[in-house]
Amino acid sequence: MVVDPQIESALRLSNLRDVPPEVLGSILSTAIEVRLPAGSVSTREGERARHVELVITGALRLFVVASDGRTMTVRYCRAGAIIGAVSLFAPEYATPVTTQALVDSRLLKMPAAAVTRAASRDVRVAGAFLSELGERVMSFIYEIPGNAFATVRQRVARHLLDLSLGLEVGRLPDLQRPGELAVSQSQQDLADAVGTAREVVVRVLRELREEGVIRTGRNRIVIADPVRLAREAEWNRSS
Rank of each mutant, 00 (worst) to 15 (best):
M1K: 11
V2Q: 15
D4Q: 03
D4T: 01
S9E: 13
S14D: 07
R17P: 01
P21H: 12
V23M: 10
V23A: 02
V23W: 06
S26P: 00
I27F: 07
L28W: 04
S29I: 14
S29P: 05
T30H: 11
A31H: 05
A31G: 06
A31N: 02
L36H: 01
P37V: 06
P37D: 06
S40V: 10
S40N: 13
S40T: 13
V41D: 02
V41M: 07
S42I: 13
S42M: 12
T43L: 09
T43R: 15
G46D: 01
E47C: 01
A49D: 14
H51C: 08
H51W: 09
V52H: 01
L54N: 08
V55L: 07
V55S: 03
T57C: 03
A59T: 04
R61T: 06
L62W: 04
V64R: 11
V65E: 14
G69M: 12
R70I: 08
M72Y: 09
A79P: 06
G80H: 02
A81N: 00
I82K: 04
G84D: 06
V86K: 09
S87C: 01
F89W: 10
Y93V: 03
T95N: 15
V97Y: 09
T99I: 12
T99H: 05
L102W: 04
R106Q: 06
P111H: 07
V115T: 01
T116C: 00
A119W: 06
S120Y: 08
D122L: 03
V125R: 04
V125Q: 00
G127P: 05
A128C: 03
L130M: 13
G134F: 07
E135I: 06
R136A: 09
M138C: 14
M138S: 15
F140M: 13
I141E: 15
I141R: 15
Y142S: 13
P145W: 04
A148D: 11
A148H: 08
F149L: 13
A150P: 03
Q154P: 02
R155Y: 07
V156N: 05
R158C: 01
H159D: 14
L160N: 03
L163Q: 15
L163H: 12
S164F: 01
L167H: 09
V169D: 08
D174G: 04
L175Y: 00
R177W: 07
E180N: 07
A182G: 13
V183Y: 03
Q185H: 11
S186R: 02
Q188H: 15
D192A: 13
T196D: 07
A197G: 10
V201L: 01
L205I: 08
R206F: 08
R206C: 00
R206A: 13
R206M: 10
R206Q: 15
L208E: 08
E210R: 11
V213L: 14
I214N: 02
R220D: 00
D225M: 01
L229C: 01
L229N: 05
L229D: 04
E232K: 00
A233E: 09
